[in-house]
């Protein structure tokens, strides 16, 4: 048992992911409160080489093996579960990403440590962690405590500033071999997104539509508004899933992270997975028929109105 705060580090192509810095920054603050250490946990074929990018950690545990060259949920769980069970950190922070969701729940089941998912805040109170989680697609927050005082939390992207976790230096590395192997899931290939005609990460004005657009024919209303504004149309996931816009226009967790001058969120509820892609926009204006939509929690201006009426009216006001 220890008072250490572990951070599971995500990485790709030899580079540590932004999430690792967000979590390490917070882990350092928490470790200071528990008199423990902020420990970076990295798995991979050459995991120890990443230590030079993890200066904010007190030390690095590198689980290294050729079989960990590419992420698979089974290999990661087999390699990490015995290690977590043995080291008993006070808290293991995992990014709430596609792979993080898999690993965290698997580790929770395998180690018996409780799991608080969708964390937007983590604190130490009375020597043990308390975690604030989002429920109901961001409409409710709940603060929980681990019954045994120790546990795992998956943390939403952007919950903590990355800057606090970026520090120079190369901490001491402890290299360990994976405790077990599991090849029942085999990595085949990585599919990178096709470059679309429009790169929404480079646009300074985005007219972003969600399920509130209702049907494919209404997308044209957004196209006209975007033309009047000199911007481009982007969307939430359901609009891309329905095939009304290409996947390259999708903003959010499994889409792109954007930071335009203006983000018009039209008929988008503001689920956590969407917010993590756009909350840093300079100006956010949201229109939604639901006064309690979480999007209003990050918008600068909001209106409870029907977008099918507001879009043409605004296009007209802008001379479109």
């Amino acid at each position: 048992m220890s008072n250490d705060i572990f951070v599971l580090v995500e990485h790709r192509d030899g580079a540590v992911a932004e999430s690792a810095y967000e979590l390490l920054g917070r882990a350092r603050e928490l470790a200071a409160a528990t008199s423990g250490a902020a420990v970076a946990l990295v798995a991979g074929a050459a995991a120890s080489l990443l230590a030079s990018q993890l200066g904010a950690a007190s030390r690095v545990i590198a689980v290294e093996d050729a079989s960990l060259a590419e992420f698979t949920p089974a290999a990661w769980q087999a390699a990490l579960a015995p290690l977590i069970a043995e080291r008993q950190p006070l808290l293991l922070l995992v990014p709430n990403s596609g792979s993080g969701m898999d690993v965290a729940a698997g580790l929770s089941a395998a180690t018996g440590l409780p799991l608080a998912a969708y964390a937007v805040d983590v604190a130490i109170a009375g020597g043990s962690p308390t975690v604030t989680c989002q429920l109901y697609a961001g409409k409710i927050n709940v603060r929980v405590r681990f019954d045994g005082g120790r546990g795992i939390a998956t943390v939403v992207a952007g919950a903590f500033p990355a800057a606090a976790g970026q520090a120079a230096g190369s901490p001491a590395v402890e290299r360990v071999a994976p405790a077990a192997a599991d090849a029942r899931i085999r990595f085949r290939r990585l599919i990178r997104p096709e470059a679309g005609g429009v790169d929404i990460t480079k646009e300074s004005i985005l007219v972003s539509i969600g399920r509130g657009i209702g049907e494919a024919d209404n997308v044209e209303l957004a196209e006209r508004l975007a033309a009047a504004l000199g911007g481009a149309v982007s969307s939430s996931r359901p609009v891309a899933d329905a095939g009304w816009l290409p996947r390259t226009r999708q903003v959010g967790k499994s889409g792109l992270r954007v930071k335009p001058k203006l983000y018009l969120a039209l008929g988008i509820s503001g689920a956590p997975e969407h917010l993590e892609g756009m909350r840093d926009a300079e100006l956010i204006v949201a229109v939604n028929t639901d006064a309690h939509a979480p999007i209003f929690g990050v918008a600068h201006y909001g209106a409870v109105a029907d977008i099918l009426e507001v879009m043409p009216a605004l296009t007209q006001r802008l001379g479109g």
Binding site: R143, V144, A286, H292, V298
Partner: peptide, 20 residues
């Protein structure tokens, strides 16, 4: 589940945004 809920709250939606 090994978790105890200490408090539930409605995040402050509609407060951050200036409503039109």
């Amino acid at each position: 589940s090994g978790l105890t809920i200490e408090a539930m709250s409605v995040p402050e939606t509609g407060r951050a945004a200036e409503m039109i």
